[in-house]
């Protein structure tokens, strides 16, 4: 089972109540903005604590309210591509990419060279995040998450605020990741056409 998730969480105006199981490698989370898609991802990454629920991904339980089990975010082996990218501004692109690379003994599916060529970011390595365009920033953020040897990937609107050519490029990259990497992915989007291209398993939040 890739995903076995049951989460109940209220946070201000937004409340999330979702339960799903899936064996698909890429599961999409769709819904209008404000329905709690990011809240759901934050719960899975361990940045928010669900009021109640259970999170098991790829056979590893990350959270279980009944057992009072709550793995801290740095132990969840999660590759989280934030919607706002969150590259470290004081580090170069290469330092950002290498930040999580020592996790799990540094033995991941990808080497730095693999990720750099997959994402076509070789010319950016010495630059600081402030000098990158939106699409470049997004690609580096994906690379940083991939290189942290994650057991699963969370992608939060990776195409948001990109023009169609750049969005197409990221989408192709996600398709390649889906086909070439053996790790489960949760893909958050509000665009149904985009989701339809990636997977037939979509969970709708409302």
């Amino acid at each position: 089972m890739s995903f076995d998730i049951m989460i109940r969480k209220s946070l201000g105006d937004c409340s999330v109540d979702v339960a799903f199981q899936s064996d698909t490698k890429l599961v999409a989370i769709v819904g209008q903005s404000g329905v709690g898609k990011t809240t759901l991802l934050n719960c899975i990454a361990g940045l928010l604590k669900p009021d109640q629920g259970r999170i098991t991904i790829a056979g590893t339980t990350l959270f279980d309210s009944e057992l009072q089990f709550d793995l801290s975010p740095n132990q969840r082996d999660c590759g989280y591509v934030f919607q706002d990218s969150r590259l470290f501004p004081h580090k170069t692109v290469e330092e950002n990419l290498r930040y999580g690379a020592s996790r799990n003994g540094g033995k991941g599916a990808l080497t730095l060279d693999d990720a750099v060529s997959l994402l076509d970011i070789g010319s950016l390595l010495d630059r600081k995040p402030s000098s990158l365009s939106g699409g470049e920033t997004r690609r580096v953020a994906i690379g940083r998450a991939l290189l942290s040897n994650p057991k699963f990937l969370l992608l939060d609107e990776p195409l948001a605020s990109l023009d169609s050519a750049r969005a197409e490029r990221i989408l192709r990259t996600v398709e390649r990741l889906r086909d070439e990497l053996a790790i489960p992915m949760l893909y958050v989007s509000h665009d149904e056409a985009e989701v339809a291209r990636l997977t037939d398993t979509a969970i709708t939040l409302d």
Partner: peptide, 16 residues
């Protein structure tokens, strides 16, 4: 210091 960057570091495996 943006707390979101600290969160990002944690998701990348960084201890406190």
């Amino acid at each position: 210091v943006d707390q979101r960057l600290v969160e990002a570091a944690h998701t990348l495996g960084a201890s406190k």
